[in-house]
Amino acid sequence: MVTESTRSHRRFAKAAVAAALALAAVFQCACSTALPARVHPWERAALADDIMNPDRDPLGAAVAEHVYFSREAASGGRGVGGAGCGCN
């Protein structure tokens, strides 16, 4: 008997395979066409500044995300991982 849960797992597996194939295509395309380098290493002083680092405070970001996660229906988008929580 195929349950709704099983069907959902299969749909998820198909989506993951499709995403992997799309990724491979993008990767192949990007590498083979050798996109022009817009920014050279010696032009990256501003980019290396702390204020341009999205991960400048991972611990702070984690506790802030947990506040939103426990009170709002939407979550994620920036990355994946972490254990679940009974708060949501």
């Binding site: 990767f27 996109l35 050279h40 290493p41 994946v80 991982g81 972490g82 254990a83 929580c85």
Partner: peptide, 21 residues
């Protein structure tokens, strides 16, 4: 409530580190 989680993340630089996948 008990939860166990795992994750695997890959970051690939190409295009002279102008692009990260």
């Amino acid at each position: 409530y008990v939860s166990w989680g795992w994750s695997v993340t890959t970051l690939t630089d190409f295009n002279e580190k102008n692009t990260t996948l």
